[in-house]
Design a protein around this nucleic acid. Sequence first.
DNA 1: GTCTATACTACGATAGAC
DNA 2: GTCTATCGTAGTATAGAC
Lengths: 208, 208
Amino acid sequence: MLQDRLLETAIAQFGQHGFEGASTRDIASASGTAMSSITYHFGGKEGLYLAAADHIALQIREQLGPLHDRVDRALPLATREEAVDLLLMLADGFARLLLRRESEAWSRFIGREQQQPTEAFERLYQGAMKAMIDTVLALLARCRPDLPETERRAMAVLLYGQALILRVGRASVCRIMGGAALNQEDEAMLRARLARNVRCILSEDMDG
Amino acid sequence: MLQDRLLETAIAQFGQHGFEGASTRDIASASGTAMSSITYHFGGKEGLYLAAADHIALQIREQLGPLHDRVDRALPLATREEAVDLLLMLADGFARLLLRRESEAWSRFIGREQQQPTEAFERLYQGAMKAMIDTVLALLARCRPDLPETERRAMAVLLYGQALILRVGRASVCRIMGGAALNQEDEAMLRARLARNVRCILSEDMDG
DNA sequence: GTCTATACTACGATAGAC
DNA sequence: GTCTATCGTAGTATAGAC
């Protein structure tokens, strides 16, 4: 489908060069069509950009939806220990997603929006991120009822950062791990260490 | 100084719009000069970009240098507990830097280079990041001699992520904390929680 | 629906006046 | 050193053919 091809190309190009750096001519020709198709289907460059954001939100929902649903269903009846396990599952699912090559294109797109939010960020947030964050906060409330709400929110932020760095700071991550790219063992170790961190933080001495 | 004014403007504009999105005309006029000054002083757009990267590395060294030196000097004689405290100091210094408004401009610049490394990343890494990472790894070796080297590197990555999210994922951080911007209490809580996470991870049960 | 042709704007580089 | 003027290229948008 022409529209989908344009969207995929747009995500890659906008992610790589930014909104202003990407050119509609290039996006169109890389999709095997003429530039004016973009005007026709999306109304222009900006319409294409927003449609790309919606497309990304949809992809993320498709990727994490099943896992997310499973966690949401299990949450109401979960004990504290089960909630810890659910959060570990969710964190690992997210980490796996961010380590996959396929996430590179759209994560660049999101990365730009994080630092420079436009209307597209609102679509990404409402379309994909909000539900996930709410679930994480609910899980944290179950795991650490001893902490004030604000501190649990801070925990969610820092947890999010530990996963996000795997994609957003990839250049540094490779340097720190000591190679040009991440190999299988690096990825396994990062995921394992993330799990240990989460477990450790969630089971921290509750007098604290 | 005209050069410095151009560099400051360039960091802001390159960070905001990317290399291709930023225009030398705009950078020049925002610096109160003509575009051809860029050609004269930096040889062109690319020269300005690389000089901007060097300028950022210098700024970071100036900001974190004193703290970093203090830690480096204390490290050789530090006990495990003292090493934990040194790492906490370093992490908090980094977090404070990333929470400051001034870090916004150059962090956007670095953020782009992280996902799309060019020669500028090499300069940033060699000029500012490498020394910091080495110190963190040395501190981790002191704190957690029980862990294999690779796992300590993974720890460094995840620690780095927890600080970096404060700047790089700011839009999400604000949403999670529940406001349009971070207020004093949010920042204090994020820093406190980061410290608790670090202490918790470093003092984790050493059986493994 | 998709393409070609064209209009208009803005870009970076460069030459030359001061 | 800094500015103005100009050149060639590349950007988006749009009208109209098919």
